[in-house]
Amino acid sequence: MKTLRIAAVTVLAFSPLALATTANAASGDATVSVLHGVPGATVDVYANGKALLTNFKPGTLTDPVMLPAGDYDLKVVAAGAGADGKAVTEAKGVAVPAGANITVVAHLTADGKPVLTPYVNDTSMVPAGQARLTVRHDAAAPAVDVRANGKPALKGLTNPNEAKALVAAGTIKADVTLAGTSTVVIGPANLDLKEGTNTIVYAWGSAADKNLKLAVQTISGMNSAPGGVNAGSGGQAAAQAAASDTGRYVAIAGVAALAGGVVLFGRRKATNR
């Protein structure tokens, strides 16, 4: 621990700018959120034998927390069953790397069995004016397409995979169809894709039980600046400035000529004498 700290301080001392950009992600920690996407089961979640979440209801997403990086044994049990209770589902040795932003999702497989899937959220910078849209298939359902404003945006997505795209920031009307068809299975829903965010949409539930739903997670802070400010293509101001400079030179030249004239005049006067 001590060496870790020293290492961190050294790094920060040599890159004060890095300090500013990573102030919320202390060295050695990962940002972890948990989504409950198994219909009908209120559960408790244990991490390495310790209670992480209790009375966790379907369709809920936790606030993100910072957890020390490492491997975690995650276990989901019926609410109140205790750390040694029968696992609804569990995942051993889930890697939580330092600095990563992870969402662990308890959901159904395509054929309806509870499972835990850890996803690494893409927190790379988003170009100015855009948003990243990520869609994750966590439902007991076949392959789907995701449509934005009626047009297929992400195609052929299968459980437990994700697809993502950079799109113009703004509100879209999204729905989910069976892959290659126009049979809507979820939605439509209005999604506010805020600039500089990763908006993550989870399709969860079960097609057979007719309880397919969407859950939405938004990660912000990946905004970047526009490429510049091009604020003048006329050139008139430059021309005017140049003209006023020329005017000044003409005036100076005029004064000089006048002075010369006086001298000349004086000389002439002198010769006339």
Partner: peptide, 18 residues
């Protein structure tokens, strides 16, 4: 390694926060 971003639950899916 990390970025300074934050996460929120929100929008039309509206998962209630745990």
């Amino acid at each position: 390694s990390g970025a300074p971003n934050r996460s929120t639950a929100s929008s039309s899916g509206r998962p209630a926060k745990a």
